[in-house]
């Protein structure tokens, strides 16, 4: 269900923990699985659980507890905007509004062509560089302006 490369990455996660504590690698393993396949369908979560020799329900609990895991399909590009207070004071709501206008969708929605999903995020721990967004969970774009956002969106297929 996962590529050889992804399985090797998961093995490297497993190696960080005591041999009898494979479950500790579940956060890394789900992240690796999601990065490869876009989102975590139930069969993928079950596969990861089996690989780590843990109950599927326990992996499912993790996938649904932490909000960067997607247990529903998302667009090719997931844009998460922090709108928490420090970001809001520094213009995050204007940035969010610009994104909604430009993409024609609201928070929690995906464009019809499957290109973009927009999400509202909570504190990303980079408030000094607000406003900011995450692209597909891992790439942070900081000190955003409408122009910088346009440039970012236009560069994504």
């Amino acid at each position: 269900m996962l590529s050889k490369e992804s399985l090797a990455l998961i093995d490297a996660e497993i190696a960080k923990y005591p041999a009898e504590q494979k479950q500790s690698a579940v956060m890394g393993a789900l992240r690796i699985a999601q990065t490869e396949q876009g989102w975590l369908k139930p069969e993928l979560i079950e596969f990861v659980a089996a690989y780590l020799e843990m109950p599927a329900i326990a992996a499912y609990e993790v996938a649904t507890f932490y909000n960067m895991y997607d247990t529903q399909p998302v667009g090719r590009h997931k844009i998460t905007v922090c709108t928490n207070l420090p970001c809001a004071l520094m213009g995050a709501n204007e940035i969010a509004e610009h994104l909604k206008q430009k993409l024609g969708i609201g928070f929690g929605e995906t464009t019809e062509d499957g290109r973009f999903t927009l999400k509202e995020g909570e504190c990303m721990g980079a408030c000094g560089d607000a406003p900011m967004c995450l692209h597909n969970n891992h790439k942070m774009h900081t000190r955003l302006t409408p122009e910088k956002l346009d440039e970012l969106l236009d560069g994504l297929e």
């Binding site: 960080k16 504590q21 479950q23 500790s24 690698a25 579940v26 956060m27 890394g28 789900l30 992240r31 780590l52 843990m54 326990a58 609990e61 993790v62 507890f65 932490y66 909000n67 960067m68 895991y69 995020g121 909570e122 504190c123 969970n137």
Partner: peptide
């Protein structure tokens, strides 16, 4: 070890649970 979007894991015992691969 990385988190994946849960403020509560900054609480030290929640963080330990998280390293153990749990909610």
């Amino acid at each position: 070890h990385h988190g994946y979007g849960a403020y509560i894991c900054g609480e030290e015992t929640a963080l330990l649970e998280s390293i153990e691969g749990k909610k």
